[in-house]
Design a protein around this nucleic acid. Structure first.
Lengths: 252, 252
DNA sequence: TCTCGTAAGATGTCTGACGTCTTACTTTGG
DNA sequence: CCAAAGTAAGACGTCAGACATCTTACGAGA
């Protein structure tokens, strides 16, 4: 597959797409150096800034790696764009289900790998969660406990994935104004997770973690199916949600 | 938090970091319009192309959204950079564990939501997997089956996450030259997953899915702990380029 | 043969300009 | 007085050329 001069739409987007295609289909192997910016600009019939913007975007997501004075190299052949698109448009429910997957796996791994320090830290986090009353503070404490479990799993990728999706989830919930209406699971269920982790029982930990989130997910479905009156009003100024959270459309 | 002129290192990276900080700490709320490129350039003491490259990168990951002729808006306050960094540097083992999380959740959801068409498709995929003999073909068929389960989960975010991480996993395995040495689970375990999904038993499906991947993960650990002679060479992550990556003349 | 300096190539950044689209305001017609 | 069309301002999109700085490779000299 070769490169061809770009046609319509956005120039930079077209360039980006062609570069990503070269990487995805293996024309440019992982580890290989791609042509210089000026060469690419010439081959594509665009200016150098256009090529640079495309390379910068691909570099930011880890597909390319730029080494000043040397050249630009392929770092990963996996195309992150479909996932990025989905993450941007995902409904709160979809994010919640992914988050549940992380929670269960984190608990399972934590049960096998947790240290004494981990347990002490988790105890602190759970206590802080129990003592929090104000909604925002409680939400933050709850997230910190879940993250604490992930940290005990000793899997940095899982930790960061969970951190990101927790933030994304919080965002989605706020967008549809359910962040204060969806009841959280009580202290008992969280205690069960910690106990299973302390006991070193992966299976029990996984089950307990699922039990923490499942009820909330069920409640979320109920709320989405029958929105409460007086809370479906659209924000009337500067906010531009419109990138459908695919939830409140029934009320429109 | 305000903006301040950038100092050392890469200009664009510094700009990008400041823009991301403004978004992450809430100085620029989701939905709000950020200052114009020229204004940002003036405030940061850099040129417009530098600002544009930073905005392009943030736009590519869904943090910002650019509307031609109008302005640039904040789309998400979650910072994806820590996750992106981790994804780029993650070990095959870490990716594998995350993949396991997806597999289990996908199976659980598929058991609840699969249609008759899903079951028929999964039967085809499983048969194709059994019939594949050549290593590459088998790996592809195996991935397609797992993706098929994800598709039956009806969660587009989970599907795309799984697709991306499967690709990333394949990449990692190839990098350490284990993609043909780690034995895959046999047909029996996969059959159990499909049966549980067909039976509509989420718990059994989750357990079966875990049983598919767990042994492979254990084997992977063994191989990584005691590398086979002749295969312990470090993956040449920074493979030096052959100049042969030049593109042929584009014939249009 | 080893070391150092130099030159070539590539990316980093800036300046300035023009094109085009969106938006809001103004003007005009009803 | 209201509504529709026209216009102007603002913002992003793209291009061109130039210079700075870093990396690498090669050749000259010890």
């Amino acid at each position: 597959m070769g490169l061809s001069p770009v046609a319509g739409g956005s120039t930079v987007d077209a360039v980006l797409e062609q570069l990503q295609a070269q990487v995805s289909d293996g024309s440019w192997a992982v580890g290989a150096r791609i042509p210089a910016e000026l060469d690419l600009a010439a081959q594509l019939g665009v200016s150098r800034p256009a090529v640079r913007e495309a390379i910068r975007a691909l570099s930011h997501v880890g597909v390319l790696e730029v080494r000043r004075g040397d050249g630009t190299y392929v770092r990963s052949s996996a195309d992150p764009r479909p996932l990025l698109r989905r993450v941007a448009r995902a409904s709160a429910r979809d994010v919640f289900e992914v988050q549940l997957a992380y929670d269960v796996q984190a608990a399972r791994l934590a049960a096998r790998r947790r240290t004494g320090d981990d347990l002490a830290r988790l105890e602190d986090l759970l206590r802080a969660r129990d003592e929090a009353t104000e909604p925002d503070a409680f939400g933050a404490a709850d997230a910190r406990f879940h993250l604490g479990v992930a940290e005990a799993s000793r899997n940095p990728l899982l930790i960061e994935a969970m951190r990101f999706f927790l933030g994304r989830l919080h965002e989605s919930m706020r967008a549809i104004r359910l962040d204060r209406e969806v009841p959280e699971a009580g202290p008992a269920r969280h205690r069960a997770v910690l106990d299973a982790i302390a006991a070193g029982d992966p299976q029990a930990a996984a089950t307990a973690a699922a039990a923490v989130v499942e009820p909330t997910l069920a409640t979320l479905d109920t709320l989405l199916a029958t929105p409460k009156p007086g809370h479906d009003k659209q924000p009337d100024h500067d906010t531009r949600p419109d990138h459908d959270t695919r939830l409140g459309k029934s009320a429109g």
